[in-house]
Nucleic acid binder design. Structure first.
Lengths: 150, 150
DNA sequence: TATTTTACGATCGATCCCATCCATGGCAGA
DNA sequence: TCTGCCATGGATGGGATCGATCGTAAAATA
């Protein structure tokens, strides 16, 4: 993993539909070694997946919320149960256990306020062991990238 | 945009490297109409991009931080300047203006604590108009998806 | 220092899968 | 009846994929 690999990864993070020739030109190699490097990065699972990113306005997910969740106690059993339930809810796009004033940060995508209301009441708050939920709604996404800076 | 389109999008959100035939099978159509639907979704920019997702451990981004930023005043000038500066910092993967007790939520990816320290002192806190920064470090990502639930 | 080995990369060529596009025909609903 | 899908089949070409050969520079070794 050297500078050229990082350049390749930067390109693939931006646009994975480029063909090998284009990427080769941008990183200063010919096609074959570029191809071999990409294959190696895929096999080594440095590249986790190739995915399509959608325009959330166009698919009707008009509301993104970040929920700060606190559990009632710091018990492994409670935490494990919480994590299991989170994985079953597809409206939760991300769930990170964090340090600080709360325990988990969730990113939720729903159609609208009604959808959020239902999500909180019917899905999230019924999970055992949740003490508090503080929500911030996204008003504007200044930047929303999946690319790491390499 | 109907149920079949949504199924196609779900597939492409999971794995964009599938060929048309595989997707066609999963959504219950033949190759041609599947292909045409995908093209239409690309041209209508419902699909924003195809990208590679990386394993952050394998590329050495060992630290993810969420920073809650408050600006000193609610002035458009300050906010515009802040947004402009944010776009120039590639370690900031996401920046969302939010409702609630703070103004902006930033997602930062760095190598380690030293990198975070430098980022805060040399890059973030020098931006004009920042009042407070509260940071939560990610201890464990229970779920980290880019897929919307369609 | 001289020589050898190793580890890239460049170039070329062959193969073949699959995206891409077209044309035709069937079928259901307006 | 007409319109809008879909299915099927076929033609084409681009690009992924792989192998072989050669060149080169740095590192290892005598």
């Amino acid at each position: 993993m050297d500078g050229i690999d990082r350049k390749i990864l930067m390109q693939l993070q931006e646009n994975a539909k480029q063909n090998t020739k284009e990427i080769a030109g941008k990183v200063g190699l010919s096609v074959t070694p570029t191809y071999e490097r990409i294959k190696k990065l895929e096999q080594g699972e440095v590249i986790r997946a190739y995915v399509a990113l959608l325009d959330r306005a166009k698919i009707g997910k008009k509301l993104i919320a970040y929920c700060q969740v606190t559990l009632t106690k710091q018990q492994k059993k409670l935490a494990d149960n919480f994590k299991r339930e989170v994985l079953l809810l597809p409206d939760i796009m991300e769930c990170h256990q964090v340090s600080g004033n709360f325990d988990y940060l969730l990113k939720i995508a729903v159609d609208d306020i009604a959808g959020f209301h239902e999500f909180i009441n019917e899905r999230l708050s019924i999970i055992n062991g949740i003490a508090t939920i503080h929500t911030s709604f996204v008003l504007d996404s200044v930047k929303d990238s999946t690319a790491y800076n390499l």
